[in-house]
Write a protein that binds this DNA or RNA. Sequence first.
DNA 1: GTAGAAGCTGACACTGGTGTCAGATTCAAG
DNA 2: CTTGAATCTGACACCAGTGTCAGCTTCTAC
Lengths: 121, 121
Amino acid sequence: MRIGELAERTAVSERSLRYYEKQGLLYADRTPGGHRDYPESAVDRVVHIQELFAAGLCSAKIVQLLPCMRDKDGGPSEKATPWLVDELTDERARIDRQVADLLRAREVLNEVITAATGTSR
Amino acid sequence: MRIGELAERTAVSERSLRYYEKQGLLYADRTPGGHRDYPESAVDRVVHIQELFAAGLCSAKIVQLLPCMRDKDGGPSEKATPWLVDELTDERARIDRQVADLLRAREVLNEVITAATGTSR
DNA sequence: GTAGAAGCTGACACTGGTGTCAGATTCAAG
DNA sequence: CTTGAATCTGACACCAGTGTCAGCTTCTAC
C-alpha cells in the first residue's frame, strides 16, 4: 500500500512514517519510480510504534525492541539480548515511576476540581 | 534562604528556580543587592511545581492551579474558576489516557523481558 | 579592605518527534 | 500525451524546560 493510505489507516502523518523509516523502525519496498510500497503488516507495526512512543521510549530503543515483540500471528522472531533486557527493565522502572507521578498529580487536580465544584463527579 | 540552599534542598537546579520565577510560579524577596531571598515555604512550593511538571502540565496551567491548591497547613487560598475547572478536567482526562498508554507499553516490555529471561521476575 | 564564594542577567544550545514548505518526480486515469 | 493528484527529498521551525557559559556584581569572612 502507498504512504497516503497507510497514513490514513493509522492516523499517523506521512511525515512521521518517513521519519520512522529513516530511524529504521519501518521498512517499505519501492516502486520502480521510488515510491514507497508498504506490506499489509505495516499497519500493525505503526500501531506498535505509536504505542511505544506514547510511553516515552525513543526510536533507538524501539528499533531494538520491535524484533523481539510477538506480532499478531507469529511468535517473537528474536529473543532479547541480556543487554537489551537490562535496558527494558530500566524503561519499565521509569514507566512505573511516571505512572506514580501521574497518579499523584491526578489526585491534586481532583482535589482542586472537587473543591471548586463541590461535587465528587 | 538563598537560591543555592533552595536548589540543594529541592534537588532542582538554580537555573530552573530562576525560570520558575520568571514564569510566575515562584516568588522571592530580594536583598538590597538584588539576590533572591526565599521564604521557608518555597521548598514545598517547588516540590509541588515539580510534581505537576512531572505530570506534563505546562507553566501556564500550573501558575493558575497553584493558588487553588491547599498547602500543607492552610486550606486553598483561592477557588478555581469554572474555566479553570474545565482546563483541569481536560488535563485529568489526558493524564488518564497517558496512564493507560504507559500501562499498555509496560505490558509489552514485560512480555519481552519475560520471554527472554524465562522467569516471571 | 580584600579575596573567594555565591549570585545576577542574558544568551545560545539541546532534545526528538512532528509540522510545513519548496521544488522536482512519479503515478494513474482520461 | 496530458494533466492533476500523489509522492519524493531536503531543509527549517517548533515546543518548553533545562544545561551551560560569559561577564559582572554582591556577599561574607578574614
